[in-house]
């Protein structure tokens, strides 16, 4: 089955993994800008990273028939220094015009601090000015629940925001309902230790239905699996779910969500999974 991984950090992965993903049926990836595992020392590092996401990674993916799209932003992990974050945000308008950019992301909260909120509000403001879709990172572990509620509070208080053009990502059992109830897309991330497993993700699909749910690997430099979406497909089949339902979650849904981006065009030819 062809699939889309709507959230994966290929800049931290190998070319061989692009190849294996293609063999498993991957036709498109979405790569949000994120924290690369270390704090960058200046805005030039971000500039080069944004160039990597918009120029180099699409070429690397295309060699295996995978379309690469990306999101521009500054992750909450590097948002605590508000002045520095403002300098990075000033770089974004140039990149938001690139043809493979889907919007602003991943942005959000990490430790739910006042400074993180200040930077987040500036990123949302930019997104509203340039009519961008928004992709929100919700915090890890014990910070997820209050952080997700704070993000939803912020979004609820801004009447300009179209909820159907926003994804609340890294949802788990205690946060997914509130994202879906307010009309947002809900991302579920499959991680081997934190976040969700394929089996628990199938549970959430069974509980809430497939509408507005995106399943991703968020594979990066840490413990993670770029073949997590195929593992979810396998778990769905093992539970007896029909191919049409699986395809809706791993292919139709991400195409529909990405289709809300002003730049998005999908032209990849379907390829058979081995």
């Amino acid at each position: 089955m062809n699939f889309i991984d709507p959230h994966i950090h290929m800049a931290a992965r190998t070319t061989d993994e692009f190849m294996v993903m293609a063999k498993m049926g991957c036709v498109l990836v979405g790569e949000p800008a994120f924290w690369m595992g270390y704090d960058r020392s200046g805005t030039n590092s971000f500039y080069d990273y944004f160039r990597q996401l918009t120029e180099w990674e699409p070429k690397r993916a295309a060699k295996y028939g995978i379309e690469h799209h990306c999101w521009m932003g500054i992750n909450a992990k590097e948002a605590e220094d508000v002045g520095f974050a403002e300098e990075v945000i000033a770089l974004l308008p140039e990149f938001l015009e690139k043809p493979t950019v889907l919007g602003i992301g991943e942005i959000g909260l990490h430790k739910n601090t006042r400074n993180e909120v200040t930077t987040l509000l500036e990123l949302i403001e930019l997104g509203m000015k340039t009519d961008e879709q928004l992709l929100f990172h919700t915090p890890h572990l014990e910070d997820k629940y209050p952080g997700t509620r704070m993000i939803l509070d912020i979004l609820r208080s801004d009447s300009r925001i179209d909820h159907t053009r926003v994804c609340i990502d890294h949802c788990e059992e205690h946060t997914i309902r509130m994202a879906l109830d307010e009309g947002y897309w809900a991302g579920i991330t499959l991680y081997p230790i934190t976040k969700a497993t394929p089996e628990r993700t199938v549970d959430m699909i069974e509980l809430y239905g497939p509408q507005r749910i995106l399943v991703n690997s968020s594979a990066d430099w840490g413990p993670s699996d770029p073949l997590a979406v195929p593992a979810f497909i396998f778990a769905m089949r093992r539970r007896g779910h029909p191919e049409s339902l699986i395809r809706q979650v791993v292919y139709d849904n991400p195409l529909k969500f990405m289709g809300g981006s002003r730049n998005f065009k999908f032209s990849a030819k379907p390829q058979a999974a081995l």
């Binding site: 014990e142 629940y145 209050p146 509620r149 704070m150 788990e172 059992e173 549970d203």
Partner: peptide, 18 residues
């Protein structure tokens, strides 16, 4: 149980966080 277990391992939400 899954949702309630998640809440055991979560910090509380303060509605006056602003």
């Amino acid at each position: 149980r899954t949702e309630r277990l998640q809440m055991i391992f979560s910090l509380p939400y303060n509605e006056n966080w602003r």
